[in-house]
Design a protein around this nucleic acid. Structure first.
Lengths: 260, 260
DNA sequence: TAGTGGTCTAGACCACAAA
DNA sequence: TTGTGGTCTAGACCACTAT
């Protein structure tokens, strides 16, 4: 690993540093390897530690690095492609949904925002199922599924436990599925994990996440709202609308750059 | 705007600061308003400017703030919902594609990555159309569409100008459309704008973007690869698979939080 | 105990926009 | 010219992990 001399360019040092590091990483490091520590790197490039960290921050945001306190800075594995679609991921009642882990299930009056997004009156009872999505054994996302009580007419008196083992949650999911979902509308945006999500994701607060908001419809009316937060560092959301040619082992480094 | 006393909590100062600022912003500020300057805010909260900036960084990543050098820090407008789907956005030949602006169109040997993703041999000629996506007059995304030469058999000798006025680009798009696209496969991930994209987006390098990679298929084979980078600060990508109930004027603040 | 990344400080200077 | 955010520094201390 060479030591750069950081040319006197008009671009910020940290950005130039990032570029140098990208090249170095691609050329001399591979997944799982540990970079020299920050103080070492900083002195090697002749910059303050804070400046070096600014460059590392960028690379971490891009999912190229993982930093572990007490350990070091490692080269991250390529992002995992996570299918986002009711069919592919084995939603509610589906069989292979072993990649979901129920967290809890509560019934409460809808908050203003939830009510708005569900098209119901604020304060109306809403059942909320929280669960985690696992991919390759790793926690990749949290999800809160909100279903108005009015949609599940005869929800049996299932104990709406907090921290339950998942049985009540599955009950809600199963009933929702039975309605026959015939429409989904999604949105994806960038966000940061608040305290709740951060704990579930086992990440520090402020971790960047991809927020996926899904509206489920049945017979032309909204029956559910799911808000999922995916770890932005390790996830690549995939929306396979059709069984398309699978030629994409592009697990190289860059997400297939711009025009060459 | 109150001045916080920053309780001695076990959480980082900058994170607590962020929380305080979120509350303050929601309560006392509205879109377009300017926050007190950083030095002022820092002293008001009794922290170093760097710490305050760390909190502002978070809020900017969330799309709640916009910082303009020489001006100040403003409350950002709610994110714009941007439909991502061939039909809805009026792709290639469509009429209402006035929201696209051609940048240039070049033909060159495919890079290794592009070739891989397109399932062709590296070095094979690929036509690349670059264009910008405008929403409400604002540049929201850049797109590079790569089409193998072998897919467009008799591409007339259109001048593949760099910085052209868009005519050659439209030609490629039209021909591609004529093939009959019958499949799309997408992925979304977080990235940062490199130099090229940054210039086109009129943003500084390192700007967070949502990278949308789309594979287009026709008659079972890949005919195109589009790599779009959307401004993560101002965009909310929407994937409306069906004409679903449009009840979402949830342009409040939070992207519809977790369980209440 | 030693080594790592995470947080925080106080200050300096620069680039940019407006008056 | 003034005020703003953007960059950079040198140093301190903390929290965590391994040994």
């Amino acid at each position: 690993m060479a030591q750069g001399q950081l040319a006197a360019v008009p671009e910020p040092k940290y950005w130039h540093l990032r570029t140098v590091l990208v090249r170095t990483i691609d050329a001399e490091f591979s997944t799982g390897q540990i970079l020299p520590n920050e103080r070492e790197l900083a002195s090697r490039f002749g910059v303050a530690r804070a400046t070096l960290r600014q460059a590392l921050d960028q690379l971490e945001l891009e999912g190229r690095l993982v930093r572990r306190r007490g350990i070091g800075t490692l080269i991250a594995a390529p992002r995992v492609g996570v299918p986002v679609s009711r069919r592919e991921e084995g939603w509610p009642g589906a069989a292979r949904s072993q990649s979901w882990r129920s967290v809890d299930c509560v019934s409460a009056p809808a908050s203003a925002q939830i009510a708005l997004a569900l098209g119901i009156a604020p304060g109306e009872t809403v059942h909320t199922v929280r669960r985690l999505r696992l991919v390759q054994g790793q926690i990749m996302a949290t999800e809160s599924l909100h279903v108005p009580d009015s949609v599940l007419p005869q929800l049996p008196a299932v104990p709406h436990v907090v921290g339950g083992d998942g049985e009540p949650a599955r009950s809600v999911l199963r009933r929702l599925e039975r309605l026959g979902i015939d429409g989904e509308s999604r949105s994806v945006e960038l966000g940061v994990a608040e305290a709740d999500q951060a704990v579930l994701l086992e990440r520090p607060p402020g971790t960047p996440v991809l927020i996926v908001t899904t509206q489920y419809a049945s017979a032309g009316r909204l029956v559910g709202l799911a808000v999922s937060t995916y770890r932005a560092d390790t996830c690549k959301l995939t929306f396979g609308e059709t069984g398309l040619v699978e030629v994409t082992p592009v697990e190289a480094q860059q997400p297939v750059g711009a025009a060459s």
